[in-house]
Each structure stands twice: as C-alpha cells, then as structure tokens.
C-alpha cells in the first residue's frame, strides 16, 4: 500500500512540468504500470483522485497502461510475454530468464492546458 507515496512523487513531476511549460492545468496523466511493479492500479487511481484536490491537476484523469512481464532468455535468445509468477522461457523452458519489462512505474505523458 505505497500507492500514495508514488502519487506524491508523480505530483512533484506534474508540478515541475507545468511550471516549465507555463501551464495552468494538467488535464490528463498517462502512467505505465508493470504487472510486477507491486502496485494495484485501482488503488493508484483512488490515491490520485484524493491527492489531486486543490492542485493543478484537480480535473486530471489518470490513465493506466498495464505492462505485462516480458522475459529474455540467455539460453536460446527467445523473448516471451509471460503471466505473472511464471518466469520460464516459452521457447526452451529455461529458468535463467532475465526480466526486461513488467516492473516499470513510469509517467509516460501528460496533457497540459495553457
């Protein structure tokens, strides 16, 4: 349940970007959230909605793009998109896979209103 800390970090970025671009309001925020990032999208939306009151993003909509786990296999070179908690290579079954996606928590883009 650290969604509120993450939302607080997001607002630091929103305020910085709005200031840089002389924007009056932030109207949309797009986040990439890996399924292995340890956060729950619904809780992130609730935290965002309570945090935004009285800020430059008061009217903003939070859009979340879920990122599936993607692994790379050093044994056969295969890349596979996996369900959570299955970290084997779909091609050769190796378990020495490296996780290349699915853990991100990234503000991809925001809409600013002048």
């Amino acid at each position: 349940m650290h969604e509120l800390s993450l939302v607080a970090s997001a607002f630091e970025v929103l305020e910085e970007k709005a200031r840089e671009h002389g924007a009056r309001r932030v109207t949309r925020v797009v986040l990439s959230v890996g399924v292995m990032s340890g956060v729950v999208p619904d809780l992130l939306v609730s935290a965002f909605d309570s945090y935004k009151k009285g800020t430059i993003a008061e009217e903003a909509r939070l859009e979340i793009a879920a990122v599936p786990v993607k692994v790379r296999c050093p044994d056969c070179g295969g890349g596979a998109v996996r369900e959570e908690a299955d970290f084997s290579c779909a091609a050769c079954g190796s378990r020495r896979v490296e996780i290349v996606a699915g853990r991100e928590l990234v503000i991809e883009k925001i809409d600013l209103e002048a």
Partner: peptide, 16 residues
C-alpha cells in the same frame, strides 16, 4: 484553450 501533450517518460522511483 490549448491543450498539449507532453512526453515525460519519468520513472516514479527515480528519486529513490
């Protein structure tokens, strides 16, 4: 009222 979309690409855990 003009709205512009800004690419940010900022990791929320970057500060940590």
């Amino acid at each position: 009222m003009t709205v512009k979309t800004l690419t940010v690409a900022r990791d929320l855990l970057a500060t940590n």
